[in-house]
Amino acid sequence: MAEFLQHAVNMLILGSTYALLGIGLTLIFGIMRIVNFAHGELYAFGAYFVYLVAAVCGLNFFLAILVAIAAGCLLGALLEVVLLRPMRGADIDTTMLITIGAMIVMQNGEQYIWGGVAKSVTTPFPATPLVVGPVAISWLNVFAFVASLTLIGASYVLINRTKLGKAMRATFQDRDTASLMGVNVQMIYMATFAIGSALAAAAGALLGPIYVITPQMGNIASLKAFAIVILGGLGSIPGATIGGFILAGAEEIGAGYISSGYRDAMGFLIIIAVLLFKPTGLSARVERIG
């Protein structure tokens, strides 16, 4: 029972950051109809930015997290304006190639700047874990969990309770009608890509200090982000949240009760099962972001 509780806690912590990845990707695809293969590199960008601000510049760790999220938001806006906006109206294959190109450039840029050696970030949290009954949790994991839930809640509020969110949902449902009603679709696209990128960078900023930071970390993050969106259903933020926790739970079961080598395999077996029996995802919503 103690082992099961430990795995359950690990699942909650990991699932909350996976949910951030999934929410960012489902926003971008749902509203812009863009398959963003650079999403994982935005995750890596957030991790490296925390390392830059906290380890290299020696600034406050919590400030580094906020700066990394803001930098991810700005980078996303830049990518949308420079790379994607000129291709507006192009077929999905073209935009896929653009995001693949961006992914390759970003990954090689990280390799060139930081080298291939893994980086780590020193945090202000004590080494002694928080012990609750049979469960031990590091304080860094507690912080990552609370911060992730805060960002997930903020995403819900943004999409469902703000004027920007209403415009984003209108653009998702019918871009042309939204434009006729006065919605600045170009601005909505830029904001959507910026917000999705910020959420990916946030996930990297929170998980990077827990593990190690490498130029290849974005590859598996991209695969997991797409897996989460497939599990939850395109266009559903609650679905992306649920999908993140399901994927994390499957990975914990695979690592804890089978073998650590099956951590990733278990998650993708779940995806195959979902695609076979419910191809639209577990919580798909028709013509709706939210």
Rank of each mutant, 00 (worst) to 15 (best):
A147Q: 05
I152F: 02
A136L: 03
V146Y: 13
G101V: 09
V157A: 08
L151I: 04
S197I: 05
A127C: 15
I159T: 06
G116N: 10
M106I: 15
G89M: 01
R88H: 06
I137C: 04
I188L: 01
M168Y: 01
G109K: 07
Y156G: 12
T128E: 13
N141H: 11
R161N: 04
P124T: 06
Q173E: 15
R161K: 09
M106S: 15
E110N: 00
P86H: 14
D93W: 06
R175N: 08
I100Q: 03
V121A: 03
K166S: 08
D174C: 07
M103H: 00
F145W: 08
T128G: 05
D174H: 09
G115Q: 02
F143N: 15
G153D: 14
F193W: 04
T99I: 10
I159R: 00
G115C: 08
F172W: 01
N160I: 06
G101K: 04
F143D: 07
G165Q: 10
T123I: 14
F145R: 03
G182K: 02
A178N: 00
T128N: 05
I104E: 08
G196L: 07
T122Y: 09
L158T: 05
T162Q: 01
T192P: 07
M190A: 14
Q111I: 10
A170M: 02
G115H: 07
L164T: 15
L199T: 01
A194F: 06
I159K: 02
V146G: 14
K166H: 12
M87S: 05
A118P: 07
W114E: 11
A118H: 14
I113W: 13
S120M: 11
L140A: 07
A198N: 09
P86A: 15
V117A: 10
V142W: 01
R175Y: 00
G133F: 00
T94E: 01
T177G: 13
N141R: 10
S155C: 15
Q173A: 15
N160H: 09
V135Y: 03
